[in-house]
Structure formats: structure tokens, C-alpha cells
């Protein structure tokens, strides 16, 4: 189980990295490598060129920028997990990291790399969708902004083109008083999710407002549940409302099963976790 050969490039700055990316076809960026290297070891991924961005210290940041937090491509999971800035403004992320992989993997892996890998069972693609983050994709000479909900297009597939690189994630700070919820079921703590459900919401005058719910693990990509969000908006929170909403939401889902985990089971999980997440978020909202 050894990787196939590749040409190795180690740019010292972003501009060089983007030039390399523009020059070489069949190139992969490696940051943490925690998803890419296993696939290379299995030879499921055999890039001809590997562009190592670990020297791009300019991308290693977690910053407050007005009403948003910006996270650079080289910010490691562990740094984000430990970040007081994140804990203060986005406790959902800090909490979710308790469920994401293990320390040695978080030490090395990056959030942006995780998003680009686009594993449908990964938690963060759902989380950045409820946070309505924006992803900055750069190529040699230009860049563009992509909303989180448009970034993921399929299993292991995103809108990021071959010559593009995700350089920054911009996450708007949720309004003060926003409640959050996170629930996951996996075989072991730290494994990829069989299903993870995340939610942000506010409670205004006893009514739900700005409800955002997303699910990982239950489809080919992590996805928001807009019908559920609309149905809940303006409702007075109650367990009955949550249960009914969950039932309806699950009916609309078409989970993708596997040999180990059936579609029925995934549907059951989403059905079970939705009310828990909504209740938790409601309890945290003020």
C-alpha cells in the first residue's frame, strides 16, 4: 500500500502555488493530507503533481474581520478547535470538533482541505452551510467567491476547478443570541458520520426565526433542508413541531445507502437527530 510516483512542488508563497497550479494538469494540492494521503496510499488517487502548500504561512490564520471570521487555507483543525475567537463567535464549530477525527489528524489536517475533499460524511461541509460561509477560490490572476451552498456538487466533487485553490473561508458571525445544535451518529466517536445534523436558529418573541439546518452523511453531498427551515420559521418551538417537521423532512430525503449502512438507517438517524438538534438550538438561543 504505497503511493504511485509524482512530481513534488513546494512553493514558498501563494503566487507561486497558483502559478504551478495553472501550469500543471493533474495536480493536487496537499495541505494536511489526512484525506489525500490515504487515497494515494491505496492508489485511489494518483496525481502526477503534488503541490505542497505547507510553506504558505501567509495562509495560516484565523482572523476577525469586522462581522466575519476569516480562516486561511493552512489553518489546521486543531488551531480552529482551540481558537478563542471561534469559541466566542461560533461555538458550533468548536463543539463539532469534539466529534471530528482525532488529535493527531486534527493537528495536521486543515479545514479548507477537508472542505475541498468534499466527503459527504464529513461534518464541516454541513456546518459551513448553516453558517452561510463564503469560499474564496483563487487561480493565477483572478479569484472568485462561492457561497457554501453552491460549493459542493457531488461526492468528492466541488466547483473548484483544476487550476483553482480554496484560499480562504469567510464566515459571517451569527447574530448574537443565535442558538446552535449538533448531533452525530457514527460507529465510533471520531469516525465519519453516518449522519450528522447541524442547526442554527434564533427565537424572536417566542417564535423561531432564521432557522438553518443541514445534514451530512445522508446524501451524496452535505445539504441544507430549506423546506424544513421555511416550515419552522415563525413557529413557536415545541417538541411536537420539531417531531412533525422531522418526519416531513425525512420523507423528502433520498439518502444513499451502502453495504454497511442502509438508506433506511440513515433516514432513521436524520429523523432521530433533527428534533434533538432543534431542541438543543432552541434551548441555547436567547
Amino acid at each position: 500500500m504505497k503511493p504511485a510516483p509524482f512530481d513534488y512542488h513546494r512553493p514558498e508563497d501563494l503566487q507561486s502555488a497558483l502559478s504551478l497550479l495553472g501550469t500543471h494538469t493533474d495536480a493536487s494540492i496537499i495541505a494536511g493530507g489526512q484525506s489525500l494521503v490515504p487515497m494515494m496510499n491505496y492508489r485511489l488517487a494518483q496525481p502526477e503533481h503534488l503541490i505542497d502548500i505547507n510553506r504558505l504561512s501567509e495562509l495560516d490564520y484565523i482572523r476577525e474581520d469586522g462581522d466575519q471570521i476569516t480562516i486561511g487555507a493552512l489553518a489546521r483543525h486543531d488551531a480552529i478547535h482551540a481558537s478563542e475567537l471561534i469559541a466566542e463567535h461560533m461555538p458550533l464549530i468548536s463543539h463539532a470538533y469534539e466529534w471530528i477525527a482525532h488529535k493527531a489528524v486534527r493537528n495536521r489536517g486543515t479545514l479548507c482541505g477537508n472542505l475541498c475533499h468534499a466527503d459527504p460524511a464529513s461534518e464541516m461541509p454541513a456546518i459551513i452551510q448553516v453558517l452561510e460561509a463564503t469560499l474564496i477560490l483563487a487561480r493565477n490572476g483572478s479569484s472568485r467567491e462561492v457561497p457554501a451552498k453552491e460549493f459542493f456538487v457531488g461526492t468528492y466533487d466541488t466547483v473548484c476547478e483544476e487550476d483553482e485553490m480554496l484560499v480562504e473561508l469567510r464566515i459571517p458571525k451569527p447574530t448574537a443570541g443565535t442558538g446552535w445544535g449538533f448531533e452525530e451518529v457514527s460507529m465510533r466517536k471520531g469516525d465519519f458520520a453516518w449522519a450528522a445534523v447541524v442547526c442554527l436558529l434564533r427565537v424572536e418573541n417566542g417564535r423561531l426565526d432564521d432557522v438553518r439546518v443541514a445534514v451530512s452523511g445522508a446524501a451524496e453531498i452535505a445539504l441544507r433542508l430549506p423546506d424544513l427551515e421555511v416550515a419552522l420559521a415563525g413557529q413557536a418551538p415545541s417538541s411536537d413541531i420539531f417531531e412533525n417537521a422531522a418526519t416531513k423532512a425525512v420523507d423528502a430525503l433520498a439518502p444513499v445507502g451502502s453495504a454497511t449502512v442502509s438508506a433506511d438507517y440513515k433516514r432513521d438517524l436524520v429523523r432521530a437527530l433533527l428534533p434533538r438538534v432543534l431542541s438543543a438550538a432552541t434551548a441555547r438561543a436567547s
Partner: peptide
């Protein structure tokens, strides 16, 4: 798992060139 600059990392998920 080894320690790289004091942090635990998986040595099977890194290329030696990256430890430069």
C-alpha cells in the same frame, strides 16, 4: 504516531519531504 515539533502526527500520512 510520532511527535513533530511537539505535536502528534501520523507518520504514514506524511511524505518524508514534508518533514524538511
Amino acid at each position: 504516531t510520532i511527535l513533530m515539533d511537539g505535536k502528534a502526527v501520523r507518520a504514514c500520512l506524511m511524505f518524508a519531504v514534508q518533514a524538511d
